[in-house]
């Protein structure tokens, strides 16, 4: 399903992650307590103060830790019995340092691709692609020991994406980054969910950091579910979209007219086409998005991006009184 329109999964589809009474105790510490959550497609933010149980949840879903009790399924597979299958389909960017210092990012990402089952030539191609996407250019041939925190985070992200996973767990990807690098990283996270079509579960201990890039936010507190708010539901309601195409104002207006003919109300906003929430007949999940895609293709225009109208997203939080 598309994350672009911000829709939740279609009825009957398998959730990306589903837990049921998931519990993990370390002696007297209850890291997770009877946790029931459902994660859908798109970007899901997992937010909670330090010690809330975010990392523990991810490690259990990956099979790195065993739960004390309860059950969970990842992409329809049971964590208790199908861990190896899950680990084929999932990418993981851990919270802490995990890069050998005496290897280049390029060599390391190729090797990790192979360890996920990519044939040699594919691993090399995909490693180069993915390193470009995360923004490691010439540095990728240097040993990672000399990298800045930002570069290390990018290399960690690249190894999580190299095997084209269905889902990635990104544990505190903005940790240790300066404000500018933080914005870059969040944009990258958003692109992974929306443009790469990979479901994302991303954590942060900063309340309010992930709302902008997430379709859905889950808040944990002391191992318990505090709130699971579907920003996606709201967008599904109104479904406002922003579209950008190459070719300047002429291309923008050409697209706007064509979309109007297809039944979508839209207007120019700067270089973008802003599409109003679609009328009843076109309000079904993904329909407006598909119209944009097909119309652009028919006109032979190069689509730069489609994204939910951020203005609407912010409205949700303003009216919802969120941090």
């Amino acid at each position: 399903m598309s994350a672009v329109t911000g829709e939740t999964m279609p009825v009957g589809a398998v959730p990306v992650v589903q837990t049921s009474r998931l519990t993990k105790s370390f002696g007297a510490v209850h890291a997770l307590a009877d946790l029931d959550i459902t994660v859908g497609e798109g970007v899901t933010g997992l937010v909670g103060a330090n010690g809330a149980g975010k990392s523990t949840l991810i490690k259990i879903l990956l099979g790195l830790l065993e739960p004390t009790s309860g059950a969970a399924r990842v992409l329809g597979h049971d964590i208790a019995t199908e861990g190896d299958r899950i680990r084929q389909l999932v990418g993981y960017m851990p919270e802490h340092d995990c890069l050998p210092p005496d290897v280049s990012a390029s060599d390391f990402v190729v090797h990790m691709g192979r360890m996920s089952g990519l044939p040699a030539t594919v691993a090399r191609e995909r490693a180069a692609d993915v390193l470009r996407h995360v923004g490691l250019d010439e540095e990728r041939y240097r040993q990672m020991g000399g990298y800045s925190t930002g570069m290390k985070q990018r290399a960690k992200l690249a190894q999580a994406l190299v095997h084209d996973p269905r889902l990635v767990f990104l544990d505190e990807p903005t940790n240790g980054l300066d404000p500018a690098a933080r914005v870059d990283m969040l944009q990258l996270v958003q692109r992974i969910g929306r443009d790469f079509g990979i479901a994302v579960l991303v954590t942060s201990h900063l309340l309010g950091e992930l709302e902008r890039v997430s379709d859905h936010v889950i808040v944990l507190d002391g191992g318990r579910l505090l709130r699971s708010s579907a920003t996606a539901d709201f967008l599904g309601h109104t479904g406002g979209l922003l579209v950008e195409v190459l070719g300047g104002d002429a291309a923008r207006d050409q697209l706007g007219e064509a979309l109007a003919q297809a039944g979508l109300h839209c207007r120019p906003r700067g270089p973008l086409v802003a599409i109003d929430p679609p009328p009843e007949a076109l309000a079904a999940p993904g329909v407006a998005h598909d119209i944009v895609r097909d119309t652009t293709a028919d006109l032979g225009l190069a689509l730069v991006r489609i994204e939910p109208d951020q203005a609407h997203l912010e409205d949700v939080f303003l009216t919802g009184g969120h941090a």
């Binding site: 680990r87 084929q88 851990p94 190894q159």
Partner: peptide
């Protein structure tokens, strides 16, 4: 880096 290996098949 063991973590990255064990998160794989």
């Amino acid at each position: 880096s063991i973590v990255l290996y064990l998160a794989r098949p």
